[in-house]
């Protein structure tokens, strides 16, 4: 509840709403001033979502950008309509709750939560270049460099030498470093550690190399990735149907008597826009992440 905030915080919020010259007021009066401003906007039909967002941001409403306009209005109203008389229980940020929640009923972990919430290692001191398929037209790559390799690269990064990421189309070939069907290349910032690459073909095999390129155009590979195959994005032209006998558990020759069912493919762009619109903010409201999965279908 707003009135329980520290005065300093309240003043900061009030400033965000454009209120000035209120330092001398009591907390409850500051809240009243804020209420007046906020409700003026909330109850005005002409107020845009953008304006509401700005107010919500000043008032530290969570996920405001994701909330539908009407819901955000309700949220903003509720900030001022609910009065708490009893002081709130002392709240401790919990081990991993998205909200501050609940009191512990058992002694705390011996290792403090801070240990576990501490940032993850930046690197594991290994050399690794990994390629992952995203969809038929995109691959993702990330790399990790050992301290040794890092130093080696730093020593060579001068006189116009550039770090380069290459993706080779190696569909149906045993890659030897120079026989790719096609080579895609990007100058990368080594510190970004990751890259998304747009690749030309679905159902094709790709391999990546991270290396250095001299101003003369000579490429020295440092790391090579695994091979990935992009998923198919169309119906196969192969239609020679083969059959299997489930009872005898083996391949059989069989002439089907059915003429076959036409294939209907899905156009993902036609995914029920109105419905999605209606429900897209649902997670912001309930906090149920995986509950929202069906919206993606």
């Amino acid at each position: 509840m707003l009135v329980e905030k520290k005065k300093k915080e309240l003043l900061k919020m009030a400033r965000g709403l454009g209120l000035k010259g209120i330092h001398h007021l009591k907390k409850s009066d500051i809240v009243e001033k804020m209420k007046e401003v906020v409700l003026n906007f909330v109850e005005d039909e002409k107020t845009t979502k953008k304006q509401l967002n700005k107010i919500a941001s000043a008032l530290k409403v969570r996920y405001y950008a994701k909330l539908q306009k009407e819901i955000l209005k309700e949220r903003l109203r509720s900030l001022f309509t609910t009065q708490r008389e009893v002081p709130a229980p002392k709240i401790k940020a919990s081990l991993s709750s998205s909200s501050i929640s609940a009191t512990r009923i058992k002694k705390p972990l011996k290792v403090s939560p801070e240990y576990e919430e501490k940032p993850l290692p930046k690197t594991y001191d290994t050399d690794r270049l990994v390629l992952m398929p995203v969809n038929p037209y995109w691959v993702h790559t990330y790399w990790q460099l050992s301290g040794k390799t890092q130093t080696r690269i730093e020593n060579q990064l001068k006189d116009g030498v550039k770090p380069i990421l290459r993706v080779y189309d190696v569909t149906f070939i045993e890659f030897n470093g120079s026989n790719a069907h096609r080579t895609l290349e990007a100058t990368v910032n080594l510190d970004t550690n990751k890259w998304y690459m747009n690749v030309p073909f679905p159902n094709a095999s790709y391999i990546a190399e991270l290396g250095l390129k001299s101003p003369e155009g000579r490429f020295i590979p440092l790391l090579r990735s695994n091979v990935v195959k992009t998923p198919r994005a169309s119906v196969s032209s192969k239609s020679d149907v083969e059959w299997y006998d489930l009872k005898r558990r083996r391949r059989i020759t069989y002439e089907p008597t059915g003429k076959g069912v036409n294939i209907v493919e899905r156009l993902f762009i036609l995914s029920s826009a109105e419905f999605v619109e209606r429900y897209k903010n649902i997670t912001g409201y309930s906090g149920g992440g995986s509950f929202a999965r069906y919206l993606e279908r």
Binding site: P133, N135, E242, F268, E296
Partner: peptide, 24 residues
């Protein structure tokens, strides 16, 4: 049923847009 077609099924998911981008 006793007869079933043999096929190499295709990489896919049932997430948004049908592949892996929701989780990557």
């Amino acid at each position: 049923i006793s007869k079933i077609q043999i096929m190499e099924v295709a990489p896919s998911s049932w997430g948004a847009n049908g592949y892996y981008e929701v989780w990557l």
